[in-house]
């Protein structure tokens, strides 16, 4: 699934984890339940409007605030294929890679893409192509170690391989 396409939902700067999944739902860690409330306080109808494979595009500092892994889990379980942002908050970035939610840091794409646009994303090449305009936006490539983590299928698989090897 390195290449996929989807429709864009656009958000602004500093989308915090309380907006992604409000704390009142954190008495469970069930992905399906979390998915139902994904982005609820930013847009109460969000999870109902989504189609699997849709893409979130946001501004800077996406996922700031709490360390709750429930945030990327909710996004992933809601069927979002990938999050593109100008930048990500540090813990969210780590969590997304650890659980295998594809994310791309791409300032130009974040600026140029609008809600409803359709794009094709090539994760390996780090390319985002606007399906109507044909414009291509480049993402910041992952450092080699993180590529290794992603290739292993997230941190747990990576650690499991390491633990087995020793």
């Amino acid at each position: 699934m390195a290449v996929f396409s989807g429709k864009i939902w656009k958000f602004g700067d500093d989308v915090d984890t309380d907006a992604i999944i409000p704390a009142r739902y954190l008495n469970t860690s069930d992905p399906a339940e979390l998915a139902r409330h994904c982005m609820e306080d930013a847009d109460p109808t969000f999870s109902a409007k989504l189609s699997p494979g849709d893409i979130i595009v946001a501004g800077k500092n996406f996922g700031c605030g709490s360390s709750r892994e429930h945030a990327p889990i909710a996004i992933k379980a809601a069927g979002i294929a990938c999050v593109i942002a100008e930048s990500f908050a540090r813990i969210f970035y780590r969590n997304a890679i650890n659980i295998g939610l594809p994310i791309l840091e791409a300032a130009e794409a974040s600026r140029c893409l609008a809600e409803g646009d359709r794009v094709e994303v090539d994760l390996e090449k780090g390319e985002i192509r606007h399906l109507e305009k044909g414009e291509v936006y480049r993402a910041v490539p992952f450092p080699p170690f993180m590529q290794e983590l992603i290739a292993a299928g997230g941190l747990i698989n990576y650690v499991r391989q390491k633990v087995k090897a020793t």
Binding site: S67, R68, R94, V159
Partner: peptide, 18 residues
Amino acid sequence: TGVGSTDLAAAMATGELW
């Protein structure tokens, strides 16, 4: 520093983290 739950799982198992 704050991390996520998966990081915590790895740290509990190995005592290390990147």
